[in-house]
Design a protein around this nucleic acid. Structure first.
Lengths: 348, 348
DNA sequence: TTGTATGCGTTATCAT
DNA sequence: ATGATAACGCATACAA
């Protein structure tokens, strides 16, 4: 091995070893590593050979110290639907696969008084290249401002455009819900129940707006009794279903603002032996695993959260993604959802 | 502000600033930071005051460089059930909350030829304090050996003890499945279908062993037709259910090795209008979200994967966990599952 | 118990 | 285009 005549570096080779073997300075090797154009083709080759021979891998900790920045993407969320986090995470990871980047996940508590301090501590410590904010905390301007102050890039993810285009990834919830409700109306439904998401957040608002849009467009009048509040959890869906099915004039269809609540609505129907979809059509939103597990399988909106994760990562660190998407793609802000028809509601 | 008379450090304060303000050397501050006993009470107070005044936070990147070790826990997994990863992750995060530690997640592909190189590259780059291996890759000795060679602590998580006590966290799958099947037998079931997990892994083996144990103990003879192979996914459960229900002598109960497959079995029953639990009792394993979403709600084994995550983190970095568990607790290896009775099978 | 000098592996500055 | 030298912020070895 030629290694021995260099420096007897038993441990992992450093930039110095590469420089010595290639007969150049550290800085030149550094330039090579960072793809600087300021390296002649001749030296480039020599260095490449040295790197290969030594099996040199740049030390990210040292780079982090020198650059005051870690090769890390951070994912901040406040415990929304577990599937949401997981699927988003999956998208991010697929984007940074074969990359020097790592993903750090960080759950936070939006109800804590120390939320901002918490996040600041985390960001100051980890100094990630960028931060991805999942709903509902993506809606908070103070968190975005904090990132700006700390000079850390961020992407806000949501059901609507929450920031300038380069800083956000969104889905078209309002439009797709309008389409879904429209499909229900086209099937003859006139009394459509709507199980809303929790108050104070954007996605429930967007989805409800789509509901209203559809009714308005079809000139179906809104019965306030048919709109009930939920919190995106199964039990809320169950309660809402019971309430809706106890109405003197039952709805013939119910849209729940996410799949988990849809499952609750279906349970309520099962309790009363109300047949789905014959006596009650049920549709949801997310297309989570639950959607296929319930019986009958749930007709729902496919929320492209995984793709949103991939896009978020790509927009955050365009230079790093392997399959460098073309500039056009990086300008994308909205990823469209689509409707999936299964058995819980006939839509076409 | 006294800050100005120190060094006009506009940016984030470093250990030097603290040393200057407290009138001590860097090293003493370093000792203070690392809770060294070699610091007098007098200096300790002065330094604490300086730290507080400056709002000093040690730079983890610098520490990482000096210590050749990152303040990071890594979670390695090969795409098992999404819920599993998520719940485990949740447990880990709850353990390292309010800690300097961060969690990096890393999915790998166990079928790739480059699996080991992939993991090595990741570990060499990130240099985490420790790595947690989820099943099924936790079962691979070559990965454990790699960690040893790289001198990175690891914890193997599984359905059985896979390594020395200090290096693993396990659940008692065999025992709990035996109990579950026993409960079914006690309810009078004699023909019990068993949907197995994928071949080549440990958890399916353990769970099937529990099944056999129970039959043997109750002197119920095993009908090979009642054991069918699955792969932990919904479709496999559906297929298995169809197969079992097509048998001349139908089973009166079915155990599926995870909830997702149980949901599939329930679909098969629904297709044939076989009533659950009256005509067919169905039980699962995991107690995932799906278990409550299906109708009737699934009686299942609660697999304490979140607690396992917490314990894994605690065992990996006992010095870091906030709520320092007593030594006794850290010796724990097996976290017991328990049975949850819902509506899909009467168990008591 | 406390301090000094040096190292960790990289990048930035400013020469040449 | 290339290189010498000084950061980056902390920890370790060794003195005192």
């Amino acid at each position: 091995m030629a290694r021995s005549d260099i420096k007897a570096s038993r441990s992992t080779p450093t930039i110095n070893d590469v420089a010595a073997l290639a007969g150049v300075s550290k800085k030149t090797v550094s330039r090579f590593i960072n793809n600087s154009p300021l390296v002649s083709e001749r030296l480039r080759k020599k260095i490449a050979a040295a790197v290969a021979e030594l099996g040199y891998v740049p030390n990210p900790q040292a780079r982090a110290l020198a650059l005051r920045r870690n090769f890390l993407l951070a994912l901040l969320y406040d415990n929304p639907n577990g599937q949401t986090v997981l699927n988003f995470q999956k998208g991010v990871l697929s984007a940074i696969r074969d990359t020097d980047l790592a993903l750090a996940v960080r759950p936070v508590d939006r109800r804590s008084d120390l939320l901002l301090e918490d996040i600041e501590t985390f960001l100051v410590k980890q100094r990630p290249l960028g931060v991805m904010l999942l709903p509902p905390i993506s809606e908070r301007d103070d968190i975005a401002d904090l990132c700006k102050r700390l000079e850390i890039d961020y992407i806000r993810v949501g059901s609507a455009i929450l920031d300038e285009d380069s800083r956000c990834v969104a889905s078209n919830d309002r439009e797709i819900v309008k389409q879904m409700i429209g499909a229900l109306i086209a099937q003859g439904h006139k009394r459509i129940g709507f199980v809303r998401g929790p108050a104070g957040f954007r996605s429930p608002i967007e989805r409800e707006a789509g509901f209203h849009d559809a009714l308005r467009e079809a000139a179906v009048k809104l019965d306030p009794d048919l709109v009930v509040l939920g919190n995106y959890r199964f039990d809320a869906g169950l309660e809402a279903g019971r309430k809706l099915l106890a109405l003197a004039q039952r709805p013939t269809a119910v849209f729940a603002s996410n799949d988990e609540m849809s499952a609750g609505v279906m349970h309520a129907a099962n309790e009363l032996a109300v047949q789905i979809p014959d006596e009650l059509a049920v549709v949801g939103f997310d297309n989570s695993a639950t959607a296929t597990h319930v019986w009958p399988a749930l007709s729902t909106v496919h929320w492209p959260i995984e793709q949103m994760g991939r896009l978020a990562a790509q927009k955050l660190v365009p230079g790093f993604v392997q399959l460098a998407p073309d500039a056009e793609e990086l300008k994308t802000v909205i990823i469209s959802s689509h409707i999936i028809e299964r058995k819980s509601a006939i839509l076409s």
